[in-house]
Amino acid sequence: MTEYLNQGSKDTRSGFGEALLELGKQNPQVVALCADLTGSLKMEAFAKEFPDRFIQTGIAEANMIGIAAGLTIGGKIPFTGTFANFSTARVYDQIRQSVAYSNKNVKICASHAGLTLGEDGATHQNLEDIGMMKMLPNMTVINPCDFNQTKAATLAIASHPGPVYLRFGRPKWPNFTQAGQPFVIGKALLLNEGTDVSIFATGHMVWNALQACKILEEQGIRAEIIDIHTIKPLDEAAVLASVSKTGCVVTAEEHMRNGGLGDSVAQLLALRNPLPMEMVAVNDTFGESGKPEELLKKYGLDVPDIVSAALKVISRK
């Protein structure tokens, strides 16, 4: 299989922070807003370099989303930053009316998504955000897989008109995609060609899918690994092309099964090409405190879970 090397683990949120600083230098219309989590979101460098274009709202996320929507009226490109839970669940109606329905050019950037937030526990581990955001018309939903891809995605969304939800995480995580990679919104990335099973993964789970791919290869199974960094709009052509070759599907995501990537892929396949499918995702439960790796294991998102899902779905062909 294609070899992917960890160039040194880094947190995806730092990719966001680096890109935001670059955007500040490139485009005077870019402004950033944060609700008292500047350090956690890695927005300090932008705040220091561009104090006039950095808006600290305090712990008032609803107001932050409204201000961001208002800033677009005047041509600004606002990037809001807070945890995934406070970027979505806490402010859903503000996003719905003032951003999505009004089709404003707001970039909602959410860190600490999913179980890998870890020890803070279920109050902060949002596992529903992709579902909430993808249901909103006009909204683009992106979940990059590592530091380099998060940086590339952050740079790319600045020149994409319209609302975007960009989701990333807290922990250091293998950084294996190319630095300076081009990022095309809505274009899935084929990481490894295979013929026996298609594994569509998003976010941190892309690395786990690549590890599962190695294990499967040792068993003589050739898995096709596709990085779905853009959940909406889904790269339907890439999904359909892959499954027409492999005949079965596994999805992997750090999100609730309801409303996540698996749900989007299942909907597409049910309508266009029904095939055996397994979903590696959290199944209708809240998380809890623990180390990221412990949580991924307990909630069925670890490498062996992807391997067993692949073996199971192949047996159903």
């Binding site: 409204g66 208002g70 009226i73």
Partner: peptide, 14 residues
């Protein structure tokens, strides 16, 4: 309850 926040954003853009 959302309009004033939006107005503030527009005022800041100005």
């Amino acid at each position: 309850g959302q309009g004033l926040s939006v107005a503030i954003g527009a005022a800041m853009a100005k």
